[in-house]
């Protein structure tokens, strides 16, 4: 399972970077989204994968080897919230740029600067 997860993280990360290297503004946003997904999975994997273990240990039976770490999920939740806000802002920005410049090609947006 860990290998699968590692591959998924890698694929997501590299496709995110690939998307960001395109000239299209919208693909930049999609790339950002993919990148943040891959990092969320990375944090998830950092907690070590476990199945059927409780996240909270009872006061009686503390066995440190046998519980699933809940903290990374809290971290991921926060990261998702943040990336949600940031993506929403970036979509707004792209929308506005598209309206002002009439193009979603980053090279053409740069050209208008020089004119």
């Amino acid at each position: 399972m860990q290998v699968v997860l590692a591959v998924v993280i890698g694929v997501l990360f590299s496709s995110g970077i690939y998307m960001m290297l395109r000239r299209n503004l919208l693909k930049l946003l999609i790339g950002l989204g993919l990148l943040s997904h891959s990092i969320n999975l990375l944090i998830f994997a950092s907690a070590r994968l476990m199945r059927g273990r409780p996240p909270i240990v009872d006061t009686e039976g503390i066995s440190t080897s046998g519980y699933a770490d809940p903290l990374p999920q809290a971290l991921i939740l926060t990261a998702i919230v943040i990336s949600f806000g940031v993506t929403a802002f970036a979509v707004g920005l792209a929308h506005r740029t598209h309206k002002l410049v009439g193009a979603d090609d980053l090279d053409r947006i740069s050209e208008t600067e020089r004119l």
Binding site: M20, S36, L42, R48, L71, P72, A79, A90, L100, L106
Partner: peptide
């Protein structure tokens, strides 16, 4: 117009940096 062009670069680069930071945080936690 000009501002938007600057803003796109600013937003994109800073977001990449945040993502790398988060990745590093994840690895440290692991």
């Amino acid at each position: 117009r000009r501002q938007m062009q600057g803003a796109i670069k600013y937003v994109a680069l800073n977001l990449i940096s945040s993502i790398l930071f988060l990745a590093a945080v994840g690895i440290l936690y692991g």
